[in-house]
Every structure is written in C-alpha cells, then in structure tokens.
Design a protein around this nucleic acid. Sequence first.
DNA 1: TTGTTAGTTAGCAATAGTTGCAAAATAGAT
DNA 2: ATCTATTTTGCAACTATTGCTAACTAACAA
Lengths: 153, 153
Amino acid sequence: MRSPNELARKFREKQLKLTPQRQLLFGLLHQNDSHPSAENLFEAASKQMPGISLRTVYQTLGELAEMGELQMVDVGTGAKRFDPNISDHHHFVCESCGAIRDVEIAAKPKLRDGSGKFEISQVGVVFHGRCENCVPSAKRSPAQQVKQKATKK
Amino acid sequence: MRSPNELARKFREKQLKLTPQRQLLFGLLHQNDSHPSAENLFEAASKQMPGISLRTVYQTLGELAEMGELQMVDVGTGAKRFDPNISDHHHFVCESCGAIRDVEIAAKPKLRDGSGKFEISQVGVVFHGRCENCVPSAKRSPAQQVKQKATKK
DNA sequence: TTGTTAGTTAGCAATAGTTGCAAAATAGAT
DNA sequence: ATCTATTTTGCAACTATTGCTAACTAACAA
Ligand SMILES: [Mn+2]
Ligand SMILES: [Mn+2]
Ligand SMILES: [Zn+2]
Ligand SMILES: [Zn+2]
C-alpha cells in the first residue's frame, strides 16, 4: 500500500488518472499521523507544489475516502480530519493543544436500549480532554501539533 | 425544573432577564426530545411568536447551554443539536430518516493507550445506522422525525 | 511524435451554519 | 413614569465545503 506501483495500479483500476496532485497528497497524508485538516494538507502540499488548489485538495481527499484509502473523521472541532489509518479505531482530542490521538476501546460496548432493533453501521467515539503535554502538572508548553488558526469552541 | 417559578428563579440568579423569548424557547426545548437544531427550534418558536429572530434563538440556546440547562450535541450531520436531557448519555443517528435517539452504554470503556496519562473531560459516542422504522424489513416509510432540509452526506 | 479526449484541475461563486456588531427595544428596578 | 443595563434584531462577516465551468493534461491511439 506504499509502493509507487501499488498506488498507480489502484488508481488505474478505478480509472483515476495518476496526476502529480494525487500522488503528492496521497504521499503527504501517509507521512502524517496528526489527523490533518484539508487546510493543513493544502499548506503542506503548497510547499512542494506551489499553486495547487485547495479545491483540488478537497476533491482528492474525497476520492481517496471513497476508495477506502483514508478515513474522514469529524471530531467536532470544525473542520473534518483525514486519517490514513483506516483500521477501526477512535480518537482523543486535546482541548488545550488540539492534538488528536488514536485510541483503542478494549471492551466492545453493549447497547442497552429498549427496542434493540437498530442496525448500526458505524460507531464514532471521541474523547475530549488534555493530553500529557497539556495536563497542568506537565510544565512543557502545549505541543501545538496541529496548527489551529482559530480554535473555535 | 419545569415550574414557572423555578425557571424565573434560575434566570434571576444568573441575572438574566425573564424575557418572553427565553421562556418560550426553554419551554419548547423541554417539550422536545427529538434533538432539534437551532433552525428547528426557530421554526417552532416562530409559530407561537412570529417575528422572533433566529439570532435570538442561537443566543438563548447558547446561554442555556452555559447555564447547564441543556446539552449542545454535535453528531456530525451539520447543525448542532440541542438536548434538554443533560444526563450523561450518547446518541444513535439514523442515516435514513435522521432521527436521533438516546443510547446508554452499559460497560464503561477502558482506554488502552500506552501513556495513559490523559485527562478526559468528555466522551462523545455517536452511533450511525438505521432505526427500526428504517431497516429494510420494516415496511413503514421512514419516520422523518426531524425535518432535514438537505441531508448532506 | 502527434493527436484525441475523457478525466482533472483551478478559480470563483454559492451554500450552510453560526457568530460579531451596533442600533432599537424592553425588563426590572427606582 | 423614568431610567438603564440587558436583550433582541437585522445584517454583515466568517468558516468549511461544494457547485459550476473553462482551461488543462494523462493516457491511449495512430
Ligand atoms: Mn486516527
Ligand atoms: Mn440525547
Ligand atoms: Zn495537548
Ligand atoms: Zn430512521
């Protein structure tokens, strides 16, 4: 899933052209486990490909998500996040620095609901709190892993 | 928490004036367990108080949330939802009709994470799927409990 | 190589949801 | 009845994202 041929083949079989923009974004995302937003990826991409359009970033991320090559995650902090880790996992969001970390849930939750006739296709669990860099005891300054321009509450 | 005096006192002690708009919205929300959006409440309020402003609805809901009188819930379907049920619970969102139902999680999840030094202040669990009115076997037409103007994916 | 063209990109307008701002209105106290 | 700190409103502004379309180009042929 990381070799250039692999990528080329995957694109071809979905009749998607192997454009420089797609290669760049795919690569950037896979080097990035910080759960970047489209804007974050646009900034990163712009460094290597000045002039790339934000529209293309959205477009491409959408396509990769449809292809199952990445997960679109909404942790409720405004912009959607893009995650190359497509395994079934959940997230912890630091309220202080905005960092997002993967979290595994050990116990499979058992729903307690009257009817019990639901058909569940997706479960999203988001923990909000402070990460180890941000809990008061830790003196270090917040990590600020992901640039957040206007940390909207 | 439902008598008129109770309400008046609560507002007074936070030095909030007991305006007709606030009374109306507080009442509407407490009669409504469908997890309405600001827009939904605005429509409902407009019937009883034509001319009320959407801005006031947002303002008031924000205040009530700060007062701890309601929960603002983001289930990732676009607009925030407002919930008079302030107990610690989670949600199920039907992908077909948009209905949102309360869900209790029986087992307390145990986080499995290397560091384990997080300080968690809030956990949000959102289940997406189809409700009993919308699972294929059920012939009934989708409930359409909450008007969704443009069911954005 | 040189076409040919289906698929792609970039730019910009438009949208949804929500908040900022300032002027007009009013609850509640005197 | 008067006063004034709050509140309400209308509207502009804003963020994140999508729609539309003209210009561009990867991939396949000739
Ligand atoms: Mn993740
Ligand atoms: Mn609820
Ligand atoms: Zn942090
Ligand atoms: Zn349903």
